[in-house]
């Protein structure tokens, strides 16, 4: 039986003196599940992801990932943002290697990098080559981010994250800035990669269709404060012909109704 991957226990989080974004909020994700988090602007979906990534700390309650309380970015969690976060002065290959370079700097200390054996430079290079090939950007290895298209940049960011061999993939609107064909390519790629690497994944999106394609389960956030998780089961995930299937439109409409009258939550 699969264990728990993410466990939020009664967390409360607020920015400054504002109303809390999460108020005694609990939520659980089982290993290898794929979740989509959806909600209007300002509902706290990015905050939730940053909390999971260890970039923010709840004021009360606890967040456990793989049984460990998250107090700082966890080496086995991969984070992909809409703003790909590539170093503009480094090439594709150097960017893809950055995570491994950082691990080499600290050594296997269990804080910045997983404890255990130090990574052999030869194996690191093989891993980078593997992911550059797998993401179809091996030919671009000596290019700088400024020379790439949006989709190629995001592929580089994905390669950089997967080279660290994470067990949990956190994505914040990763494809929102891309044109439709590129977005669909990358969505399909994420589905394949998730399968290949046995990943648990949480994707934040404002796009209902993207949420229903990538999330086996949907978590809907509303206007703060969020108190209880609103969850939808989604049997249509990863199915290209979901539009033709009975029930898809009904689910779509239910999610949309749940999102309420928020205009940002468009298709």
């Amino acid at each position: 039986m699969a264990g728990s991957m993410i466990e939020l226990k009664e967390i409360t989080f607020a920015y400054g003196r504002h109303q809390p974004v999460f108020d005694r909020y609990s939520w659980e994700v089982t290993e290898r599940e794929s979740w989509a988090v959806i909600g209007p602007s300002g509902c706290g979906k990015t905050t939730l992801l940053y909390l999971l990534a260890g970039l923010r700390q709840p004021q009360s309650g606890s967040i456990q990932i793989a049984g460990q309380v998250v107090e700082r970015p966890r080496p086995q969690s991969g984070l992909i943002l809409q703003d790909h976060g590539l170093l503009p002065w480094a090439t594709v290959a150097e960017n893809a290697r950055l995570g491994l370079t950082i691990r080499t700097l600290y050594g296997p200390d269990g804080r910045h990098a997983p404890a255990g054996d130090a990574l052999d430079p030869g194996i690191a290079q093989q891993r980078i080559d593997h992911w550059l090939n797998r993401l179809g950007i091996a030919d671009l290895r000596d290019k700088y981010p400024g020379q790439l298209s949006g989709g190629q940049r995001q592929r580089t960011a994905i390669a950089r994250t997967l080279a660290l061999e994470p067990d949990l993939l956190l994505m914040d609107e990763p494809f929102s800035a891309l044109d439709a064909p590129t977005r669909e390519d990358l969505q399909r790629l994420i589905v394949e990669l998730r399968r290949e690497a046995n990943l648990t994944s949480v994707i934040v999106t404002h796009n209902i269709d993207e949420a229903l394609y990538l999330g086996r389960k949907l978590l809907v956030l509303g206007h703060p404060p969020n108190r209880t998780p609103i969850v939808f089961e989604n049997p249509f995930a990863t199915q290209a012909d979901r539009y033709q299937q009975p029930g898809y439109q009904t689910l779509f409409d239910r999610v949309r109704a749940e999102l309420g009258n928020h205009h940002e939550a468009a298709v």
């Binding site: 970039l55 970015p73 080496p75 170093l87 370079t101 950082i102 600290y106 804080r111 960011a157």
Partner: peptide, 23 residues
Amino acid sequence: ELILSVRSLGAGRRALFRYVYLP
């Protein structure tokens, strides 16, 4: 976002200085 994503790769102060702030 750049700082956050580099931090999510495991970078602490030392790595941020070396790979982001200095360059």
